[in-house]
């Protein structure tokens, strides 16, 4: 009996003691470290990051998960043959599409386009929007007015619509043209987030202190303001990443995104839509993978927001 109590108490009080010590100044952790500590214990974070890691692995090396050529079609034997759920990880696991190609292989190979678009657009938008937002927020005055008006102008044009107009100009569209179009239209969202965040941070005492100590503008911006203002940007970026993947799929679905030699879930959904009544599985698997991917990034963003926003705790 005493043994049991000992064991029961072994884990919990240690943690309690630690969290009780948290507010003390000598054990101060940076916001990032604090958030990481909080995140590690959230099941939603663990599930979503495992999903994303698996997805990135599939995107980097789809050949590890299937040996089937996703572009090899066999119309005579495989035209829209239904899934064979017993054949795990085989070519016919998810059935065949309207050109006799293995849906399982295509679903795996399609991950690459989505992941590349999602990550590159988010990175580009964060860098471009982050820099402009920082400059506008920190310097204020006419620079701020100019940047804010430009973001207002971009906000009037819906993302999907603008992307259609830009992409229609390309005769052959690759992943990079989609990335370019989405960055060109999406950066202003980050500018707004960063600008708001910088404006609250720049009034902090440590910024005044750094100025008084004679730190240069560059040093103040990148060493003092950026680390303290970046949290909302990270949250918005994670959630937006899922959104960009969905936008790419929507563009490909509309026929103005990626083109056929590239394998994309959006293209596959578009071709499956014509046979939805006879072969709903052809639509279900790429659509399911797409939704699962977007879900994983939105869940990650939710978890990161809860961890980074101390107000909600």
């Amino acid at each position: 009996m005493p043994d049991l109590i000992e064991k029961k108490n072994a884990g919990i009080p240690a943690q309690r003691a630690e969290s009780a010590a948290e507010p003390k100044p000598e054990k101060a952790r940076s916001l990032g470290l604090d958030a990481w500590h909080d995140l590690r214990r959230r099941p939603i974070f663990i599930v979503s990051s495992l999903l994303i890691l698996l997805l990135i692995a599939i995107a980097i090396a789809p050949g590890l998960f299937t040996s089937v050529d996703p572009r090899a079609g066999d119309l005579r034997n495989h035209y829209l043959s239904p899934p064979n759920y017993g054949h795990l990880f085989q070519a016919d696991w998810f059935g065949y599409d309207g050109q006799g190609r293995s849906i399982y292989a295509r679903v795996l190979y399609g991950a690459r386009a989505s992941v590349v678009v999602g990550i590159c657009v988010t990175a580009g938008v964060t860098v471009l929007g982050g820099l402009t937002g920082m400059i506008a927020g920190y310097f204020g005055g006419w620079v701020d007015t100019l940047v804010s008006r430009i973001t207002d102008i971009f906000f009037g044009i819906p993302l999907l619509l603008g992307a259609l107009v830009i992409l229609n100009a390309f005769t052959s569209r690759t992943v990079w043209s989609v990335v370019f179009a989405l960055i060109a239209l999406g950066w202003t969202q980050m500018t707004r987030v960063m600008r708001g965040s910088v404006i609250t941070v720049k009034q902090a005492d440590y910024v005044t202190a750094a100025k008084a100590l004679g730190a240069g503008t560059f040093r103040i911006l990148f060493k003092h303001i950026l680390p303290n203002a970046i949290a909302p940007v990270i949250v918005v970026a994670t959630i937006a990443l899922g959104g960009y993947i969905a936008t790419e799929a929507t563009l490909s679905f509309l026929g103005i995104g990626l083109q056929d030699p590239t394998i994309s879930w959006g293209i596959d959904i578009n071709s499956a839509q014509k046979v939805i009544r006879t072969a709903p599985f052809a639509l279900f698997f790429p659509a399911g993978m797409l939704s699962l991917t977007v879900l994983a990034f939105i869940m990650l963003g939710d978890a990161v927001r809860d961890a980074l926003d101390p107000k909600l705790r």
Binding site: A287, L290, S291, V294, I298, M299
Partner: peptide
């Protein structure tokens, strides 16, 4: 969460 994750065209 599910509704947000599934794109409109799906």
């Amino acid at each position: 969460l599910i509704v947000i994750s599934i794109p409109t065209f799906v």
